[in-house]
Amino acid sequence: MSGTATDGGVAVRLRHQLPLLLWLVLVWNLLWGTWSWANLISGVAVALVVTLVLPLPPVVGGVRVRPVALLTFLGTFLADLARAGALVAWQTVRPRGIASSAILRVELRTDSDLLISIVTEAVTLVPGSMVIEIDREHRVIGLHVLSVESGEDLDRQRRSVLLTEERVVRAFGTAEEIAALQRPVQPAGRPS
């Protein structure tokens, strides 16, 4: 801690780190497996020590959660996971294997660290597509796609990333960020 910080500074920092504190207490309780007041209090103590000793940069902008959009996002994500998992498993087993892969550039429309992180995590978790490069300044991600058979596959993959982004922004983003989704995207990968 910077010792000269005023009380207000500490309070603001604590308020910013509240989600992290709650998450750490939750993990502590889950690790113990049972819920009790002793676990809760020791969890709060451990979480405070961890956040003060190992501070993280605050999440800029904060989070807003829209329950319906969040459920839509999670449902589609799980469906994607199952479908793509089965597809990749089949591509592994089938005799002719995979044809060839590709690396795509996809330009995202959102401009928030948190939202880009969530989009990237979701895209990488789905088998068959993997984010290998993030250019934060230009909001461009590099996407490695397993098994591309035709140009349509590339277009479909690009569209699906943009759809994932749209669902993430609708679930977690601010009103301005949702409005920014209307911005036109370049259909081709290359910047002009």
Binding site: L81, A82, G85, V88, A89, T92, G97, I98, S101, T124, L125, P127, G128, M130, I132, H144, L146
Partner: peptide, 17 residues
């Protein structure tokens, strides 16, 4: 699979699903 990136796809699949 032929190279690291494609093997990576195979490796992340059991990790998730």
């Amino acid at each position: 699979f032929p190279d690291v990136l494609t093997r990576m796809h195979a490796g992340t699949k059991p990790q998730v699903l």
